[in-house]
């Protein structure tokens, strides 16, 4: 990897320190906030395939939480 070769003295690149850091914490906080802000989604419209907003919003955040976990994973494991 390029980064490693630029920092031969440290042995491993500065990014591979397995730290979440502020960006990592923000990635993790986003899905949490999305489901905690109940007043925003406790309603019927807009509907999707006949499913009220309350239901599809919360179900939607399940795969989206996976995406944000992936961003946090990339941050921790690869330092990006």
């Amino acid at each position: 990897m390029k980064i490693d070769s630029q920092h031969p003295a440290t042995g491993r690149s500065a990014g591979v320190r397995h730290r979440l850091g502020l960006p990592g914490l923000i990635y993790l906080a986003i899905p949490c906030l999305a489901v905690l802000l109940l007043p925003l989604y406790n309603r019927a419209d807009p509907q999707l395939f006949g499913i009220p907003f309350f239901y599809w919003w919360q179900i939607l955040w399940v795969p989206l939480s996976g995406f944000f976990l992936y961003l946090a994973y990339r941050r921790v494991e690869k330092g990006r």
């Binding site: 993790l28 309350f54 919360q58």
Partner: peptide
């Protein structure tokens, strides 16, 4: 009804929490 749906936000919340803490 809707109250029973708390299981969903509950499972959305759990993985960011463990991701930050349990490693």
């Amino acid at each position: 009804g809707a109250l029973g749906f708390f299981a969903l936000p509950y499972t959305v919340l759990v993985y960011p929490l463990v991701f930050a803490i349990l490693p």
